[in-house]
């Protein structure tokens, strides 16, 4: 039982991180039918930004964090304005190819411009383990789970309760009808890109002490989040979260109870099973319903 709880915490602390990146996939897909294969790089770039501010320039943590989120937001804005807006009429395939290109550009650009090395990032929270009977908690895992949950809840409330959030939902469900309401769909899409980047930037700050900072971390996180979004349901924010947790827990439990050698394989098998049995994802809604 202690073992089980231990694994549960491990799985959830990874899963929630995948989930928060996956939420971005879902937001973009819902509002602009965009699949952003540069999603991982939207995490990688803020990681480096955080290193630049916090470690190189030695700015304290919180100001660095805020500046990183600001930088992420600007990046998302430019991403939408300079690239997506022009390519959107070309359809999903054009966007997929363009974002793949952009991700490569950012990845190798960072490698050349900065470093191919992995960069150090300090722990954000105490590393002194807390023992509770047989269970050992790491404050880092617990804080990550708590803080990311809070961010997701705030995001959820913003989407459900605010005027802009309602507008985002409207755009997600029908762009044309949203326009009928007088909603400026372009603005909403820009806003969603900014929001996505800020979420990715948040994930970056929490992920940096766990993964360290490296130019190609985006491939890893991007793929995990993409798989999570598909498993959970590409058209539901809930789905992204469920998918992220499913991937995180599946990895951990498969590694603990079956074998560590094929932990990634289990996630892929899970993906296949979900695609075969419920292609819209665990909590996804069939697209025909629109």
């Amino acid at each position: 039982m202690a073992n089980f709880i231990q694994l549960l915490i491990g799985g959830v602390s990874m899963g929630i991180l995948y989930g928060v990146v996956a939420i971005g996939f879902v937001l973009l897909w819902q509002t602009s039918q965009t699949i952003n294969f540069g999603q991982g790089e939207l995490v990688m770039v803020p990681m480096f930004l955080m290193v630049a501010l916090h470690i190189v320039l030695k700015i304290p943590f919180w100001p660095s964090f805020v500046l990183t989120l600001l930088g992420s937001g600007i990046m998302g804005y430019l991403f939408e304005r300079l690239m997506i807006r022009k390519l959107l009429p070309g359809g999903v395939l054009v966007i997929v190819i363009a974002t793949l290109g952009l991700s490569g550009f950012l990845r190798y650009g960072m490698q050349i411009a900065w470093t191919p090395q992995t960069l150090f990032f300090p722990h954000l929270f105490s590393t002194k383990p807390i023992e509770l009977g047989d269970i050992i908690f790491s404050p880092e895992d617990i804080w990550n789970i708590v803080l990311i949950s809070v961010i997701i809840i705030v995001l959820h409330l913003c989407i459900k309760r605010t005027k802009l959030g309602m507008a985002m939902q409207a755009v997600a469900q029908s762009r044309e009808t949203a326009e009928l309401m007088g909603i400026n769909v372009r603005h909403i899409i820009t806003l969603v890109f900014v929001l996505n980047s800020v979420l990715a930037g948040t994930a970056a700050v929490f992920a940096a002490p766990i993964f360290f900072v490296r130019y190609d971390i985006g491939i890893f996180l991007g793929v995990k989040a993409f798989v999570a979004a598909i498993i959970g349901g590409f058209n539901q924010i809930r789905g992204a979260l469920v998918g992220g947790l499913t991937v995180g827990l599946a990895e951990t439990f498969a590694a603990a109870y079956i074998t560590t050698a094929y932990r990634d394989a289990f996630v892929m098998i899970l993906l296949l099973v979900v695609l075969l049995i419920k292609p819209e994802g665990i909590v996804g809604i069939k697209e025909e319903a629109y």
């Binding site: 939902q169 029908s174 009808t177």
Partner: peptide, 11 residues
């Protein structure tokens, strides 16, 4: 009010 039932189905 356009043709068809343009409600936001999940709201």
């Amino acid at each position: 009010v356009p043709q068809g039932r343009n409600v936001f189905p999940f709201l």
